[in-house]
């Protein structure tokens, strides 16, 4: 995977245009023993039309829960705050209205395509289902499914429609999952680690496909990953999550060149590079806190080299800082390194 940020060829932000998605102070909590625990703890961000945003973080940082909360798919959790997508507050929709958003306005691609496909249904059935739910006739839905598979460069697509998931390779399954998300013609595509379960060569293929499709359709993409190489190659903007909140949010180029949050800095330093001399692999000391035992103050302070007294007491809020947003009392200097 390449590491060079690539800012070229991205749609320029249109000033004054309302964002497609704006999330304000989103908290997602789960009840444990009569206690409510925030897994996602006050996340705010927005995504413009056509923008590709990467959401990065370690396991347990709350990035997947955030993504699923956008579609209200976490049934046992309670979400507060507001999620406005295409002018409507997701959290205020009725169940029926929410169903129209799922697969309609918002499409979702999941991590492990095998476990996210129904083993007993044919591929064609499963791709067409998004449309069948919306009352499209079987024939039209199947024609559209065929069309989508063609668009995703699946060879002999017509035959593939009658095959079952176990008859497909990993990369093919991921295309099927992608087709399932795209057939409803969504405005926003949420991709939850769509390439993690694939080998590197197939990863590249799927990414190139995602890149092409999101560009040609003008799709907004929220791309969840822990692979920084993918972020650099694919996204316009990167948001870094730690212990349930966004700690840094900026365009990919600036963030990769000069991260302002010590955690982001640590993540980038931990990526092995061949163009730099180093005897040992850099890593962030300690481990990320468990959801039920997040520290007071800045959640990152026990692992942070730059922490001082204030970090232990007061939790930093996300604030504007040189065109980026950073939640840190003592950010890295602007021209680091």
């Amino acid at each position: 995977m390449m590491m060079q940020p690539n800012p070229a060829g991205r749609p320029a932000p249109v000033p004054g245009e309302a964002p497609l998605l704006s999330v304000d102070n989103l908290c997602v909590s789960i009840r444990v023993d009569d206690r409510s625990v925030n897994i996602v703890d006050g996340v705010s961000f927005s995504i413009r039309r056509g923008e590709r945003v990467a959401l990065v973080g370690e396991s347990g940082s709350g990035k997947s829960v955030t993504a699923r909360a956008l579609m209200r798919l976490e049934r046992r959790m309670k979400a507060t705050g507001s999620i406005v997508c295409d002018g409507r507050d997701i959290l205020k929709l009725s169940d029926g209205e929410m169903r129209r958003v799922r697969g309609g306005t918002i499409g979702m691609v999941f991590q492990d395509p095998m476990s996210f496909l129904d083993p007993l249904r044919t591929i064609g059935d499963q791709i067409a289902e998004t449309l069948r739910i919306r009352g499209v006739s079987r024939r039209d839905a199947e024609r559209k499914a065929l069309h989508i598979l063609d668009e995703l460069k699946v060879e002999r697509a017509a035959e593939r429609l009658t095959a079952y998931p176990h008859e497909f390779s990993g990369g093919m399954r991921q295309r099927v999952v992608l087709a399932m998300a795209l057939i409803g013609d969504p405005r926003l595509l949420i991709a939850d680690e769509p390439t993690t379960a694939l080998d590197v060569r197939v990863q590249d293929q799927v990414l190139a496909l995602l890149d092409e499709i999101s560009r040609s359709r003008g799709l907004s993409v929220l791309f969840i990953t822990h692979d920084l190489g993918i972020v650099a190659g694919f996204a316009d903007r990167v948001m870094v999550m730690y212990a349930g909140s966004v700690v840094e949010d900026g365009d990919v180029y600036s963030t990769f060149a000069a991260p302002r949050h010590p955690y982001t800095r640590g993540l980038l330093d931990a990526v092995p590079r061949i163009d730099r001399d180093s005897d040992r692999l850099a890593s962030i000391r300690g481990t990320p806190p468990h959801v039920f035992a997040r520290p007071q103050g800045c959640p990152f302070h026990p692992r942070c080299d730059r922490a001082f007294e204030r970090c232990v007491i007061e939790r930093p809020v996300l604030r504007e800082l040189g065109g980026m947003r950073v939640a840190c009392h003592r950010p890295e200097p602007e021209a680091a390194r």
């Binding site: 699923r68 579609m71 798919l73 169903r99 129209r100 958003v101 799922r102 697969g103 309609g104 499409g107 979702m108 999941f110 492990d112 476990s115 996210f116 496909l117 129904d118 083993p119 007993l120 249904r121 289902e129 998004t130 739910i133 919306r134 999952v177 399932m180 998300a181 409803g184």
Partner: peptide
């Protein structure tokens, strides 16, 4: 299981999730 969430993400009703997907499995 995961694929049930994927079916919900398509906008399926709970009846469809239960009878069309969960039951056969």
């Amino acid at each position: 299981s995961d694929f049930i969430m994927a079916v919900r993400a398509k906008g399926a009703t709970e009846r469809r999730v239960l009878i069309g997907h969960a039951f056969p499995n």
